[in-house]
Design a protein around this nucleic acid. Structure first.
Lengths: 244, 244
DNA sequence: CGCAAATTTGAACGTAGTCAACAAGTGTGG
DNA sequence: CCACACTTGTTGACTACGTTCAAATTTGCG
């Protein structure tokens, strides 16, 4: 029951009024299952629906002309899906389920109507967008300026941190839920090289692996290797709430 | 006078009412010069002010621990600056002027107040965020999955297109206004390799260079080499306005 | 004009990619 | 319940794209 989805995410930013709470609940009242491996939305498909991810893990990616894939983002409960479809006729990216998922679909017009009626929610969505934007620029800097090993270390830390946000049981050990090819498509590497780097991280005693389970043995060193910039502890929404 | 700044950018999305127009004008009534090379906002500095870029060209970048730099974005008239500072105590990125610039500074609380009073503007800002987000993910895919030459071709096309949006005089020839080191910091390459790739593009007859001026001789081939995904022609805001 | 910054080129090096073969899982149908 | 097919993971040998280091040349500016 403590799946932290959209309302809870917004609730991190501002204290929701009962009215706002109701509006969000109505918006997200419908539910839909998406099976592992299933595509929720395909690149270039027309979109008029948005979603909130309620449970499970998804990813978004684009395909380049030569068939190679770049994974843009991993998605976790509470994330808004397909927002980037707002300004475009066609989706710029594909959304796929990495595990069985539940999503809450709603019309984009319903979304903008709720934002129009509840301006504080609109501001909160803008703030959430910015958090996501910074996550994207951190990855951009990683791809542009760090080594293969650093990118993989960063990915391990990022996934663990995001899993831990919805599942307090997760500590140093977790199930990645990604193939090495997917890790490569996220980090701009080949699966072969991902394999070598994972092995090196293991040989150096920074991680342990067992099937799909990963254990972070030395987070300090791992974070340094990843050039990991911790953003979560430097957030500040107090000034937003004070605005009420 | 036809500097297309913030109000005009929003005006692309929705027909602004006189009220909305006044609110934006009041928000951006102050002006400030930023000289070429000057830093408007430094990474880790506390921020309470946002800006609209009114004239000139700026860039945002982050520095990694080893001193290397990743340029995240080039900024043109009408762009909102320092928005990413909304959720954080400290700026996650540095803003620098590439040419002499004018910016309109305002308090972030004033910004959220205007959005609260004019919900349609808030929605428009969300839509602008998404356009920027897609631009970022396109660059992410470029860094992760394309060759050095492709990234440079993409950068040339992108800068030209953005310059052309505020300056109708710009066609195939334009002043890049970037050093080769800056091109490298934007594309994740070294300045040495940037130089070689520019030379190759020139030898292949795709571009011509003369001092800081670049001419695109074969845009078709260049766009193909860049894996360039044209987003501008596929935008669709009609449904937004219809909502009024 | 003179100096510092930016560009250009060459040679050697190294990180990551490619190709290939094999092993280990994983799921499916007979 | 096992056999077979298919996906995923692992390792080695070779290749290549982009980096590093260095030095010469050009450009721009005070």
């Amino acid at each position: 029951m403590p799946e932290r989805y959209f309302a809870e995410r917004l609730g991190d930013l501002i204290e929701l009024t009962p009215d706002e709470r109701v509006a969000i609940d109505q918006l997200t009242e419908r539910e839909r299952m998406v099976r592992r491996g299933q595509i929720l939305l395909r690149e270039h498909d027309p979109v008029t629906e948005l979603f909130v991810l309620k449970s499970g893990m998804m990813m978004s990616y684009v395909l380049l002309h030569d068939g190679s894939r770049q994974i843009l983002r991993f998605l976790f409960p509470g994330d808004l899906l397909a927002l980037s479809a707002l300004p475009y006729r066609q989706s710029p990216e594909t959304l796929t389920a990495l595990t069985d998922c539940t999503v809450c679909p709603f019309e984009r017009a319903a979304f903008t109507r709720v934002l129009g009626e509840h301006p504080r929610l609109a501001t909160a969505v803008i703030v959430l967008n910015q958090i996501e934007r910074v996550a994207l620029t951190d990855r951009l800097a990683g791809l542009g300026r760090t080594s293969a090993k650093a990118r993989i270390a960063a990915l391990l830390l990022e996934i663990r941190d995001r899993l831990a946000r919805t599942n307090r049981a997760i500590g140093k050990t977790f199930v990645l839920g990604l193939t090495q090819e997917e890790i490569g498509d996220a980090t701009g590497l080949t699966s072969v090289h991902v394999n070598r780097m994972l092995r090196e991280l293991e040989d150096e005693g920074l991680i342990a692996r067992d099937g799909g389970r990963v254990t972070l043995l030395d987070e300090r060193t791992l974070a340094r290797a990843a050039h990991y910039a911790d953003r979560t502890t430097k957030r500040d929404f107090g000034w937003l709430a004070a605005d009420t």
